[in-house]
Design a protein around this nucleic acid. Structure first.
Lengths: 112, 112
DNA sequence: TTCACCTGAAAGAAATCTCTTACATGTGAA
DNA sequence: TTCACATGTAAGAGATTTCTTTCAGGTGAA
């Protein structure tokens, strides 16, 4: 349940944007489909699409393609109930499961 | 105490980076000064300097310039005890104190 | 003086993120 | 058929982030 270090980075990066925060805030009030949100928020649909993908990739929202009564395909998104606890020690723990950066490790310099 | 929407974005952006997470993790184990951390972590001092500034600007760490016994200037950093609660509704609340995006507001189109 | 340590900051390359415009798909109704 | 709605994706400009290299200052000790 606790995200790995890498997952945490993805989640934080997804939330570290005003527009995406607005999107999450909006969806926390109920599910909605792409085109309507784009109209309401006042941004282009492709742009919203991109932000939604980013949020979904982070596991913060989920989307499902549904058919409306009149037969149109609508993609509804809703928030997942994530809850992250961010403190220095929580970060310290998450870092342990962070993919090592091949470059910066102390590594023995012998034997390439 | 609860950060505004704008502050939250800055904090999240500061944490949304593997290297900066490592820095926070390290400082959570005790204060340290710049050059030593750079050596240990294995990155250049200017680069570390930049990341530290970013974390300090977000209020996650604080630095203080001190004089060591042998008279050298050392900049020590330590973590602040931040704790962020990240949930959809917390985001919804923070968004209310987000600086409005002049562009995307519904705004009356008359009278430029 | 020269060396080893500490600090800060500027310049530029490379990668990533954000956003717009444009194109292509499908449906039901007029 | 054409319109109004829905979906997705690709191409490119512009801004930001990340990182290296280079320069500048300071201290105490050899």
């Amino acid at each position: 349940m606790t995200p790995t270090g890498d997952e945490l980075v993805v989640m934080l990066a997804a939330l570290a944007n005003p527009l995406r925060l607005r999107i999450v805030a909006r969806l926390s009030g109920g599910r909605d489909y792409v085109s309507r949100m784009a109209r309401d928020i006042g941004i282009s649909r492709p742009l919203l699409h991109m932000h939604l993908q980013r949020l979904e990739a982070a596991g913060l929202i989920t989307g499902s393609l549904e058919l409306s009564e009149d037969g149109k395909a609508m993609k509804y998104y809703e928030v997942t109930d994530f809850h992250l606890q961010l403190t220095a020690s929580a970060v310290a723990e998450a870092v342990q499961t962070l993919t090592p950066d091949p470059d910066k490790s102390p590594a023995s310099k012998e034997q390439t």
